[in-house]
Design a protein around this nucleic acid. Structure first.
Lengths: 140, 140
DNA sequence: TTTACTGCAAACCGTTTGCAGTTCC
DNA sequence: GGAACTGCAAACGGTTTGCAGTAAA
């Protein structure tokens, strides 16, 4: 992540911190979460700079945007391998799902001149934690 | 659409108009578009009422929400048969895609206690009109 | 008559933008 | 030194909400 950028980018403390916050597996932070985490390391960083930096990282292809739940975009540093998402309808956490087997396709009759360039698959459900909490709730 | 509702709902001119606007095939209107069309028939109808009514129709299961492009939710009256969506990245129009063949599933290892209740598939690409316009643009 | 719905306007949330000041190269 | 970046605050687009008034049953 760091390497590539040094060739394209003016490196500022703010940008470094935003990039660092996004390192990891199964990371799908909202802009606000990124801002909070970034402020832990660099208290003066502004919301505008976080948004600007996130948009630049997206434009550079360094992070992806996941916009499948509750209004707020999530930023996903895993652009290396294509993957789908499994989202909990209750707590809105997201789990990455590696792609396996055949991908769904649009039947020829329906496609009809439409150039299809990609497919997004989103699985929805209830995560183990929320399922447990829900069971506990009923019992009480 | 009308029938079911009469058992659940207080029927007002505003609500009737919103419901009527949403009748049809391949209908994926934004709230604002619904408001505009509704005003053609009932000029005094307010934005708030349109939003309230749309939310009620969604809660009743009479219409679905499609939230896959450019910030604004689309309202989809086709809840009878499950279908996927094909969206043009350029003009943001949406085409319904009937489901055929097998649906993608989450590998057991990844699922791991997560209860999966649904899968959304979104195909992205360029519609014939936009592709044509794009070609014309290059030629010029 | 009563309860539920409407319209208005203000509030809201996530995000973007204009601008003056600052920093990186 | 100059272009590029930052922070602030205001503006934005889509959506929701509080409230006083109105209308469906």
């Amino acid at each position: 992540m760091t390497r590539l950028r040094e060739r394209e980018w003016r490196l500022s403390p703010q940008r470094r911190v935003v990039a660092e916050v996004l390192v990891g597996e199964h990371v799908h932070l909202t802009a606000e979460q990124v801002h909070d985490l970034a402020r832990d390391r660099l208290p003066e960083i502004s919301r505008a700079t976080v948004y600007n930096t996130l948009n630049e990282l997206v434009a550079l292809g360094e992070v992806g945007v996941v916009d499948i739940v509750d209004g707020a975009k999530r930023y996903d540093p895993n652009t290396a391998e294509a993957h789908d998402h499994l989202v909990c309808e209750t707590c809105h956490t997201i789990r990455d799902v590696p792609r396996a087997g055949t991908r769904p396709t649009v039947p020829k009759r329906v496609r009809d001149g439409f150039l299809v360039t990609g497919v997004d698959v989103v699985y929805r459900g209830v995560c183990p934690d929320c399922a447990r909490r829900h069971r506990a709730g009923r019992k009480r």
